[in-house]
Simulated assay, not measured.
Amino acid sequence: MSPPHVLVLTRDQDPHADHIRRLLAVRGARTSVFDNGDYLTRAHVELAYTARGLARRLLHTESGTLDLDSLTALWWRRPTPPRAHPAINDPSVAAYTAQESVHLITDLWEHVPCRAVPARESVFRRAAHKPSQLVLAAELGFEIPETLIATQADALWDFHNRHDGHIVTKPLGLPWVENLEAGHTVIRKCDLVSARDTAYAEALRFCPVIAQEYVPKRLELRVTVVGRRVFAAEIHSQNSNRSSVDWRRYDFGATPYAVHRLPEEIADLCLAMTDRLGLVFGAFDLVLTPDGRYVFLEINPNGQWLWIEERTGLPISEALCDLLLEGA
């Protein structure tokens, strides 16, 4: 019998993918890597149909030809989008061919007959929508922060006043802004809103943001669901001024990490939410308040975990290997 074969969709220099590939190799599994951005430049897809339906589904790369129907799992990590061939000089033609390539590659991975982690792209893209996450989380029984999503200054001013100025804002979708002229990227995180910030509230009419009441923190939690297993890590973000509002402003020297004993009812809520979202993997951000309440912030359907594993010893990578090989 052929060994399990996992296709990893990711870009170059992905430490998470490299780590999992090494673990899978130890287990005797075969892995292949493909970046969607290589389509038309370093790789080609061949789909052939007879009168009765699909006949073959092949991916031709520089390393050989891969029969996509032979895969046992597809792991969507961090691929770049398809782009136009560099030989095309006309910008309008380049944009058209890139978009046509996106249509093909996007649909291709929807129908490969194997397990998809964290889910099919259409599923995990939809699962990442934060407004819908909040509705579902509250419906399932999570406590969520009072939240406002609006493009009117008056609404933000009222929200700010009702919470005595203790509110934060965060991006609705993209966590970065690319400054093409300056050639650098600005990362957008969760930020406190000062009285001075509210003077610029009229700018909301140009772009929506999420505003939420600031939730007091004893700890922040990163809860990673892999299949039916739940791994909870506590982040002592309040030990550092730098990480106190958003732990992603890392201060590893002053911020301890540890395994957290998550109450069974909260773990069950995490599993229920991944189920409802159609995911087999998800990274939850929760807050444990000083008075012991667990508050849902969001779920990342394709979040990072390796740094959590390195600091806590939680066997997240081994669980992910189990998931990718399950049923193979």
Rank of each mutant, 00 (worst) to 15 (best):
L148V: 06
L148R: 03
I149H: 07
A150G: 10
T151D: 05
T151I: 13
Q152K: 02
Q152V: 01
L156M: 15
W157F: 09
W157K: 12
D158F: 10
D158C: 13
D158Q: 15
F159P: 00
H160M: 00
R162T: 02
R162Q: 13
R162H: 06
H163C: 08
H166W: 02
I167N: 03
I167Q: 00
V168D: 05
T169N: 13
T169D: 01
K170P: 10
P171G: 04
P171W: 00
P171H: 00
L172G: 10
L172I: 14
L172C: 12
G173Y: 04
L174E: 12
W176M: 05
V177I: 15
V177L: 14
V177D: 12
V177F: 15
N179D: 13
N179M: 10
L180D: 06
E181A: 12
E181Q: 09
A182V: 10
A182P: 03
G183T: 12
G183N: 05
G183A: 05
H184K: 10
H184E: 03
T185Q: 14
V186S: 07
V186I: 05
R188F: 15
C190M: 04
D191Q: 11
L192V: 11
V193A: 12
V193S: 01
S194I: 13
A195W: 01
A195I: 11
T198A: 04
T198H: 09
T198F: 06
A199C: 14
E202M: 06
E202C: 08
L204G: 00
L204T: 06
R205K: 14
F206T: 10
F206K: 11
F206L: 05
F206S: 09
C207W: 10
P208K: 08
P208W: 02
V209A: 13
I210A: 03
I210Y: 00
A211K: 00
A211P: 03
A211G: 02
E213F: 00
E213G: 07
E213V: 09
Y214R: 06
Y214W: 02
V215W: 00
V215H: 00
V215T: 06
P216K: 04
E220C: 15
E220L: 14
E220V: 12
V223S: 07
T224E: 11
V225Y: 08
V226T: 08
V226I: 14
R229Q: 15
